[in-house]
């Protein structure tokens, strides 16, 4: 039917049925007001970002201009290279600057994400499918630790890391989150419980052992919650400020948020440079978000309903 109407009106067939339905919906005044209101609210939400982004291209005198203008009159992309130079010329604190901080943030986030996905999936599988001694006890313990604020354990952790000589290295930022993620274990366990038992039994009859079953059956079936958990973990690590602040001292170890904070302190009047630094930190994840919006939003809704 839709092909026939499409031929008659000359509209391309793709997406035809949907379009037709929307066209028939009456446009009420309420709808118009609603759309205008939401558009204004959305712009208000996005404005600080736009302000940050465009200001990072402005010469200093335009930044403080009154009344303010959003778009730069003279685009000045050299703010970025200047921020890099200042960051590397500013003495010991900034010896290596933004490219290194970018690299540090990137590799720490990636290693933690991959590691935590593996260990969480393993523990989730054990909790969901293996009857081992003490399973209920350990599960309750995992659940109850979700209440403990990180600020309570950070003081002993700092002392322990000092004993291990790990302070001012990346190890305190990498090893603990890989080896302990109660939320990740819980989330994946909820999904693992839903995998039909018959699949596992069939694989066992075919002669697959526990480890084969885990790698070639369970992991692929846990793909969608693992993608969601992976995105959350990467976001959390990339944006993490508290732990790097406590554990890192030398600028060549700094992650991006830490370097931005230091840069802000050292060049407090160079707002163009500071905005360039913030843009470098925020933009990669905003771009990832634009492409992965569906996974992120659905993952959040699902993790809420599963917990």
């Amino acid at each position: 039917m839709s092909t026939a109407t499409a031929d008659a009106t000359g509209v391309p067939t793709t997406g035809k049925p949907r379009k037709e339905r929307i066209r028939h919906r009456p446009i009420t005044i309420g709808q118009v007001i609603l759309q205008i209101l939401m558009a204004i609210a959305s712009i208000a939400m996005a404005l600080p970002f736009l302000w940050m982004f465009f200001s990072s291209f402005k010469p200093l005198e335009e930044i403080f201009m009154q009344p303010p203008k959003l778009l730069p009159m003279n685009w000045q992309p050299q703010n970025y290279s200047e921020a890099f130079d200042q960051a590397s010329a500013g003495g010991a604190w900034y010896a290596s600057g933004f490219p290194l901080a970018f690299f540090n943030s990137f590799y720490i986030s990636t290693v933690v994400t991959l590691g935590t996905l593996l260990t969480s999936a393993m523990a989730a599988y054990a909790f969901a499918r293996i009857r081992f001694f003490g399973r209920g006890f350990w599960f309750m313990l995992f659940l109850s630790t979700m209440m403990v604020p990180g600020q309570l354990t950070i003081i002993p952790l700092y002392i322990i890391m000092g004993q291990l000589d790990w302070v001012d290295t990346h190890l305190p930022l990498i090893i603990p989150p890989i080896l302990f993620n109660a939320f990740g274990v819980f989330l994946l366990r909820q999904y693992a419980r839903g995998i039909p038992l018959e699949l596992e039994e069939a694989a066992a009859i075919d002669g697959a052992g526990r480890f084969r079953i885990f790698v070639s059956l369970i992991l692929p079936l846990l793909k969608s919650p693992m993608v969601a958990l992976g995105i959350f973990t990467f976001l959390g690590q990339w944006n993490n400020f508290f732990y790097p602040l406590i554990f890192l001292n030398s600028s060549d170890k700094f992650t991006l948020p830490l370097l931005v904070n230091q840069f802000k302190g050292a060049y407090s009047s160079n707002w163009a440079g500071i905005m360039a630094a913030s843009t470098i930190t925020a933009l990669p994840l905003l771009i990832v978000f634009i492409f992965a919006q569906r996974q992120i939003v659905e993952g959040i809704a699902l993790s809420g309903s599963k917990t």
Partner: peptide, 21 residues
């Protein structure tokens, strides 16, 4: 098997959560 699969997270639970707590 259970404890092999649990091992990494159990070590983390004890070393980075229960112990520090």
């Amino acid at each position: 098997h259970g404890y092999i699969f649990m091992a990494p997270q159990l070590i983390g639970l004890l070393a980075f959560m229960i112990g520090p707590l």
